[in-house]
Design a protein around this nucleic acid. Structure first.
Length: 264
DNA sequence: ATGTCGGTGTCGCACCGA
């Protein structure tokens, strides 16, 4: 990162990048993020709206997949130097859930962690295995001599404060002890949960189901997270959720989350 | 259990995953 620079970096689970394109473009214009990670593209590799995003001022790299998953990194502040797509450790994992790139002197890791329901079951086992691979990989990134930002839909509520009705989520794959412990181990590695760092005691949600007017009732969850290595943590100036976006027409069930980093 | 989306397949309504 260059001296005197401020970067606004965001993550947004769009829940279908093509069905959601008008909302995505509207949010980019409204929020003016410099770097963005997207999840749940739900688009094959050749159906990503590269041209529309270029028109909006963003270049992109993406890892698409038919029907499900899919992650992307957008930048309006220079080239995106891809360093990795897919987590190491399982050659049989074909799901597009991880993408990583160097942009403007910072390393960006964008991820979409498996949902894992129903628990118990093979999907839950896959979630734990994926989490273990993430843990291993992030251990290799935390001490890099550059700010590292690992962000996305983790499908984990880290604490009771992050769930509108904790008792109803006890057995769910998003709130199970194994998964919360895995998230806590990332923090133990030294990663800083940026949103919680800036809002220690506040109820902050990033996701509300479409069902039963969850947003209107603020029956939400905090499952989209921004993790910072120590160098990035020292530059953290702000972290917020664009909650209003969740109230827009034809919106995603997630709201965008962003941070501001500055070396000034 | 509830009930709401996008994407996909087979064709105008079913299913799946979330």
């Amino acid at each position: 990162m260059h001296m005197g620079l401020t970067l606004k970096i965001a993550t947004y689970n769009v829940n279908g990048v093509n069905g959601r394109l008008p909302v995505l473009l509207r949010w980019l214009e409204y929020a003016e993020p410099d770097i963005v990670c997207l999840q749940e593209l739900k688009a094959p590799q050749d159906k990503f709206p590269e041209a529309a995003l270029l028109d909006a001022g963003y270049r992109s790299i993406w890892h698409g997949q038919k029907s499900w998953n899919g992650v992307a990194i957008l930048s309006r502040v220079g080239e995106i130097h891809e360093t990795r797509r897919g987590l190491p450790g399982d050659p049989d994992d074909t799901q597009s859930r991880y993408i990583e790139a160097a942009v403007n002197g910072v390393l960006i890791a964008g991820l979409y962690l498996p949902n894992g329901n129903p628990r118990p079951g093979p999907k839950f086992d896959f979630k734990l295995a994926w989490f273990a691979r993430l843990e291993q990989h992030l251990a290799t990134l935390i001490s890099l001599d550059a700010p590292v930002i690992c962000m996305g839909d983790f499908n984990v509520m880290p604490t009771e404060l992050d769930v509108y009705a904790p008792e109803r989520w006890r057995d769910d794959a998003l709130f199970s002890p194994e998964v919360r412990q895995a998230y806590a181990r990332l923090l133990d590695q030294g990663w800083c949960d940026a949103l919680r760092e800036r809002h220690p005691d506040e109820v902050v949600y990033t996701f509300w189901k479409y069902l039963r007017h969850a947003f209107e009732r603020n029956a939400g969850l905090r499952i989209d997270h921004v993790l910072l290595n120590p160098l990035a943590t020292a530059m953290l100036r702000d972290a917020q959720v664009d909650t209003g976006v969740r109230g827009w027409e034809k919106t995603s069930d997630h709201a965008p989350v962003w941070i501001e980093l500055s070396d000034a």
